[in-house]
Design a protein around this nucleic acid. Structure first.
Lengths: 336, 336
DNA sequence: AAGCTGAACTACAACGTTTTCGTAAATAAA
DNA sequence: TTTATTTACGAAAACGTTGTAGTTCAGCTT
């Protein structure tokens, strides 16, 4: 592969390897004319220092890992963009690992990251993850960890989240004010803290407006697309059909649209729909979807900023600080 | 960071470092009982070999780079997913770099990748890229390169694309058969080979059905969202307004929807719309968008497969082979 | 003139693996 | 019995960079 190294530069310049190395790092120990000679030749030969030699020597890789459940999803895609932006600024490299919502894959990725390959990890839990020993082990190996969105409350680490409880409450309240009396809540894994919080916002919303909580109105959608579809279809075909739906993640809202279309249900007349979502096309849907949209890009940037602050040890980082960025309710025709 | 290494294992087991290394790699030179002892201790101490030491020694990093213009876009997100899937299978790691459609960033990424950091690169050109010297240099350094979607015809390297010419033709033909007589083509940078091909399909489609080609009906949208919006708005407000629109990329189709909504134009009555797109919500839009959808996931997988075939040198890879995966026309209400 | 200072460099070890080249002992072949 | 081969291991040299600890020599002090 690459073959121009310090030794070659040194030989060419009649200098020692150490001098060349130091010159390139602009050390004060090297005279200006020598530095210039070194710079010039390095440029001419297009010298790129071997990052692996450097990492080995310095015990720092200038590389971080981003571990997320999926990427074909606007939320995570924007978060990556935020992370990559900050990483680029700081001169770091970004490794990406997709768990596909599978805890087993998350475990194997975490095990692999114990090798010192990365200086830090930014992670969003997979839907299936219950046991978090693999993440604790990572911490024991002193690999700094920052969570975002799907955080793990039982681990002491910085977390970047949205105001999930409030958003759940606001969403429910909005549906109630729009006239809904029987609101279903579609949620993913109850092992995730964000699910709990959004759900608590939902139940508190009902409570606040004296609506009864009905167990049957909470649908857990943890499985494959097919069975999620069936569950939603069952819900919307039932006699006690809800008149409002609060979907805690984007894909569930999308499925609701598909089911309504198939059952000939009119949104918002028959059922009002609202969902957490970062769809760029939310306003173009038929009807336009009311969303709770999260500041995904900013969350990514924030998570990365916190991680780098820790890596560069410029500030003492509170080990458990939690940054809460507000999500926004965007009212559109699906709830009017 | 990580601190358990071969030396420690060796000392603990009263063996030499070389023996431990060999045992872990299951070498025939080591006796079975010794291997077992080594395996057991390695497992117990949760030994993870330092990847950088290994990379340095072996001149292979088991890491590839994916360089793409953006990620918040279903096409590229799915492609990444495909690439990551194959990379995982092969035990490779994936570095991600976003150029944000900026040629300068592409150049600086390419320069950085000359360091030997990666064993290979999968790349999709930025919209702005004209000069490709940075990629040629990468090849000169023997970094294997595979293009996908936005390929560079002037560089000899494997390419994974869709049948862009045919798709452009089919799209145009479909609009014509739907009754359009004045079809506009919205395109991005004319420096990209895919743009040319889609455009050629468009002009040949017009020719085939004896429709005149009108320069004014080709809108080049290479700038920021704001000015793209203005251009499309101008097009649709003009007296000689088209009755059909063929958008060569997703974001342009989305903008057309926004403009039509604002101008009170009815899709498909006033103007029919069709676009290259991988939107999951295409069928839920108002009206549902007719798309040419590319097999993004498969393209990612294919690009990765070709790259690994080359890296593992199992087969002699044709340096310039081109894999063409067909895109699909999905007819929906925006063109009926 | 001897000793000191500092500027500008060099030598060498280290980082953790892998690999090449040995070599001692055990076994097989002559 | 002697020689050849095999088995199972070890020593040491890489890989390319960086950090520590010198070294050299000019210029200065006393």
């Amino acid at each position: 592969m690459n073959t121009v190294n310090l030794k070659q530069l040194a030989k060419e310049l009649n200098l020692s390897v150490s001098t060349v190395s130091r010159a390139l790092r602009d050390s004060w120990e090297i005279s200006t004319p020598t530095k210039q000679r070194v710079f010039d030749l390095a440029k001419k030969m297009n010298f790129q220092p071997n990052p692996y030699a450097s990492s080995l020597r310095k015990h720092r890789s200038r590389t971080i890992a981003v571990v997320i459940p999926e990427v074909a999803n606007n939320f995570f895609a924007l978060a990556i963009k935020g992370i990559e932006t900050i990483a680029r600024e700081k001169g770091y490299h970004v490794l990406i690992y997709l768990t596909n919502e599978d805890c087993g894959e998350e475990v194997s990725v975490a095990a692999n990251l114990q090798s010192g390959r990365v200086d830090g990890v930014i992670l969003s839990l997979s839907e299936q993850t219950r046991d978090v020993r693999h993440l604790l082990e990572l911490q024991q190996r002193n690999v700094p960890l920052v969570f975002f969105d799907r955080v793990c409350d039982s681990i002491e680490a910085p977390k970047v989240v949205t105001n999930d409880y409030e958003s759940g409450f606001v969403a429910t309240e909005h549906l109630i004010k729009a006239g809904c009396r029987r609101i279903a809540h579609l949620t993913i894994s109850m092992d995730l803290s964000i699910s709990h919080k959004r759900m608590k916002g939902y139940t508190d919303g009902l409570l606040r407006y004296d609506l009864p909580f009905d167990e049957e109105m909470v649908i857990h959608c943890e499985d494959d697309e097919e069975s999620i579809y069936r569950k939603i279809r069952a819900l919307l075909s039932s006699e006690k059909r809800p008149d409002g739906i609060f979907a805690s993640v984007e894909k569930l809202a999308v499925q609701v649209y598909h089911v309504c279309r198939e059952l000939g249900l009119d949104i918002p007349k028959d059922v009002k729909v609202l969902g957490f979502s970062n769809l760029v096309t939310a306003s173009l849907l038929n009807p336009a979807l009311t969303t709770i949209s999260q500041p995904a890009y900013e969350m990514g940037k924030e998570a990365a900023t916190i991680l780098f602050r820790r890596l560069e040890k410029k500030y003492i980082v509170v080990p458990d600080d939690r940054v809460i960025l507000p999500a926004r309710l965007e009212v559109r025709s699906s709830t009017i």
